[in-house]
Amino acid sequence: MKFAIQINEGPFTHQAADTAYQFTKAALENGHEIFRVFFYHDGVNNGTMYGVPPVDDRNVSALWSELAEKHDLDLVVCVAAAQRRGIMDADEAKRHGKGASNIAPKFRISGLGQLIEAGIQADRLLVFGD
């Protein structure tokens, strides 16, 4: 079955980002397909590579990057939500005259159309947030 995931909450805020990760991991382990993971609202904060949690704590962004690397996941960060919160890839950073990009590996920035498409293409869309 094809699942699409929407995440509206940042890492270390409450639990939604963790639940979404665990659900996605379990779905993949059970042979399901993840059509796309869409990071929206504060959820875009999962897409920064500059988070440095203590070594004995989970690094939510890095976990997503690793899972995406392993399963070739499509991790999409909403561009409008990302601009507001300072999440940028190289093109966005250049366009806005910022010094550097901070988007985590395997994440990409795109628009809301990607969420709509995920809702249409996937069999189920699950929303995780606070």
Partner: peptide, 20 residues
């Protein structure tokens, strides 16, 4: 249920509504 059970429930129903 565990996370696998969560995935199974999502697959077994026609849609999923999250109450946030």
């Amino acid at each position: 249920v565990d996370y696998t059970g969560f995935v199974q429930l999502a697959a077994d129903h026609d849609n999923v509504q999250s109450w946030l």
